[in-house]
Design a protein around this nucleic acid. Structure first.
Length: 296
DNA sequence: ACCCAGGCGGGCG
DNA sequence: CGCCCGCATGGG
């Protein structure tokens, strides 16, 4: 309590082992709709009806996040949840640092966190992500927000951004309007997923369920398969045992651990037994490092 | 011009 | 089951 009130007064949230740039850039939901200012080491994004501006200062090992000009109490809980402040990074690193490739990946992207995001927002961005590239996922997501998200105003009544589109707004949108945002063949998945989430599946009732229940429920949605379901389980529900296998992860795993082509199921089993509850963290480092080095 | 991108559903054997 | 194919779109 004493600590909390001090934090509120100073508007500083301590965070150890955190690299904002790697966390932002590594193709997680924030990559697709936030803006990052490298010079200020500041991230800016809409959250729950307001624009949040968060600045990271200090060092990667021992720094702090401050919320600029916004509701401090709200920012405190948002940061705590979004960047998973409950994670003991040294402990997690000790669990996933199993070999030279993992050591190299952790060293290179030290402080990259797995983020915790809204389930619906996570669902949308990862439906868009399929057979797509990071730049275009971002382009499409931003267009959807401008088109379907309600505007956010500053104190002078100027529009300073848009909220993420609600489930309802996508469910009742016309196909033409959705397609004008450039999703291509994923447009039909977006709309039907939104309709399913209105009628048959309450995404928010899945909070607190176990990994398998969440994954099964997600995969019942047309347009969500294994990989996207795992991404949502990991980044939308915080299930760190989820191990999404996309083409990059598959290539790295085959190259580094199997030395030959391998089925997805075998790779998933291997990851589960090797990294267990923190396979999702391992995956994020494998994915991002593998992608950066072009899988050797 | 050609290739690729954080996959998926559908159809076939 | 497992396998293979098409899929919209934009950037390198």
């Amino acid at each position: 309590m004493a600590i909390n009130s001090r934090l509120l007064e100073t508007n500083l949230i301590p965070i150890k082992i955190f690299n904002m740039q790697h966390t932002f850039e590594s193709a997680q939901p924030l990559t697709f709709y936030a803006d990052y200012y490298i010079r200020e080491n500041m991230i800016k994004y809409p959250s729950n009806g307001r624009i949040l501006e968060l600045k990271h200062s200090g060092s990667i090992n021992d720094g702090s996040i401050s919320a600029i000009g916004s509701n401090t109490i709200y920012a405190l809980q948002e940061v705590k949840k979004r960047f998973r402040l409950q994670d003991r990074m040294n402990y997690i690193y000790s669990k996933i640092d199993t070999d030279t490739f993992m050591s190299e990946s952790i060293k290179k992207y030290f402080g990259m966190r797995v983020t915790m995001n809204d389930p619906w927002e996570t669902t949308v961005v990862f439906i868009i992500s399929q057979f797509n590239n990071v730049k275009r996922i971002r382009l499409i997501t931003k267009k959807l927000m401008e088109h379907f998200g309600t505007p956010i105003y500053d104190e002078h009544n100027m529009i300073i951004g848009h909220n993420f589109p609600t489930i309802e707004s996508i469910a009742k949108a016309s196909e033409t309007d959705i397609m004008s945002c450039g999703p291509g063949f994923r447009g039909k998945y977006l709309k039907s997923a939104a309709q399913t989430c209105m009628e048959n599946l309450d995404l928010y009732s899945l909070n607190g369920k176990n990994y398998y229940k969440i994954k099964d429920a997600l995969m019942s949605v047309h347009g969500i398969g294994e990989k996207v379901a795992d991404c949502i389980a990991l980044m939308g529900y915080g299930k760190t045992e989820a191990f999404p296998i996309d083409r990059w992860v598959k290539r790295v795993m085959e190259r580094i651990y199997f030395k030959k082509e391998q089925k997805i199921d075998k790779i998933a089993d291997f990851a589960n037994s090797r990294w267990g509850k923190y396979a999702g963290y391992a995956q994020q480092y494998i994915f991002w490092n593998g992608r950066s080095i072009g899988v050797i």
